[in-house]
């Protein structure tokens, strides 16, 4: 009968005590690390609690190297005022040893830290829209800033002004520190365009390869191409966020002076925005007209007319209102997700 292993020797704590910490020299070649520095404190996993079965954290070679690297790169700790401070300034991104200041991740060359609008640029946009009353489309085209971004800037600037009026404290030290870490766009004359403003979404129907036979004599336009991809595919001229720019380019091509074409564009943009606002207003008004409000002092009841036919032929259509016989009412069921899908 072989000698039995004593039960206590199998306990992980005792086993751990037997393990000698690996000397730093054996973990990696010292030449690669340069001057060898022994970790001062926690290299030897001594167990302070003899009854704990949790193994003490081992300092791996990778971890130690990382720590040494961090200690060598102390300028990453504090922000470099007015410029970016990414890791890629130390790591060449191409074979020629070139480094890029705008790449936060050296391995991912497709992601760049893009410029953000400076405080002055935001103020300028807000002034143009709210004080000078320029249409959003015109401001967007003037500064080459996406229309949605222009709207967002104005919306948040309004809140900021409101806070200032209410003497609510703004996060000013935070704002100045963060803008100091990021590349900034001041929207000055002669600067590179901030972002593309004529982006169109790539519809999945248009990603297929297509062979459409046409006669040579026929003019095949973008509109025809869109029709070939599908009945409901719009040509880029209509999909663009600022279609008035196309007309402006056409006018310039036809011989109109650029200044005149621009004035025409601003006029068209203003008109289209007014029409859009009127349409929205009419829609809201129509929705309001469908409601009957009854104020009881404590509550306001709102009644809306419904159509019983909305439940559809099966009685299960999503637009159907109220409880229906045989249709499960999931609202109060346990485990149903009630995370809102939109917030008005």
């Amino acid at each position: 009968m072989p000698p039995r292993i004593r039960g206590s020797s199998c306990q992980p704590q005792l086993l751990l005590n037997c393990i000698e910490p690996v000397p730093a020299t054996s973990l990696s070649s010292s030449a690669a690390l340069g001057p060898l520095r022994r970790p001062t404190t926690s290299s030897a996993p001594r167990c302070s609690q003899p009854f704990s079965t949790t193994p003490a954290p081992q300092v791996t070679a990778l971890r130690r190297k990382f720590k040494e690297w961090c200690e060598a790169k102390q300028q990453l700790r504090e922000p470099q005022r007015g410029q970016t401070n990414y890791v890629s300034q130390f790591i060449p991104v191409s074979e020629s040893g070139m480094t890029r200041p705008d790449m936060p991740f050296p391995a991912n060359k497709h992601f760049r830290s893009e410029r953000v609008l400076s405080e002055k640029a935001r103020e300028m946009i807000w002034r143009d829209v709210m004080v000078n009353g320029m249409p959003l489309k015109a401001v967007s085209a003037q500064y080459s800033v996406d229309m949605r971004r222009v709207a967002a800037v104005v919306r948040m600037k309004e809140i900021e002004k409101k806070w200032e009026r209410e003497n609510k404290p703004l996060a000013l030290p935070y704002a100045s520190a963060v803008t100091g870490m990021l590349p900034l766009a001041h929207l000055r004359q002669g600067e590179d365009p901030f972002e593309p403003i004529n982006d169109i979404h790539v519809h999945s129907y248009t990603m297929q390869q297509l062979f459409v036979p046409t006669s040579e004599s026929r003019e095949f336009t973008r509109a025809d191409a869109a029709k070939a991809f599908g009945d409901r595919i719009l040509p880029p001229d209509q999909k663009m966020r600022i279609p008035e720019l196309v007309q402006m380019e056409k006018n310039i091509h036809a011989g109109m002076s650029p200044q005149e074409a621009r004035d025409e564009f601003v006029k068209a943009a203003s008109e289209s925005e007014k029409a859009y606002a009127a349409k929205q207003q009419a829609r809201l008004q129509a929705a309001e007209d469908r409601k009957v409000r009854v104020d009881s002092g404590r509550f306001e009841f709102r009644f809306e007319k419904i159509n019983a036919e909305d439940v559809g032929p099966t009685g299960r259509a999503r637009r159907g209102v109220g409880w229906r016989y045989g249709v499960p009412f999931m609202d109060r069921k346990r485990g149903e997700l009630k995370i809102p899908t939109s917030v008005e």
């Binding site: 504090e78 922000p79 893009e114 948040m156 963060v178």
Partner: peptide, 26 residues
Amino acid sequence: PWSPRDWMSPFAFIPRYLEVNQRICA
């Protein structure tokens, strides 16, 4: 007085699909 955290700047970037106003943290 407030100052940014250590090691914050190497990871500071704002992607293009967001528009941030740092003053009101929105």
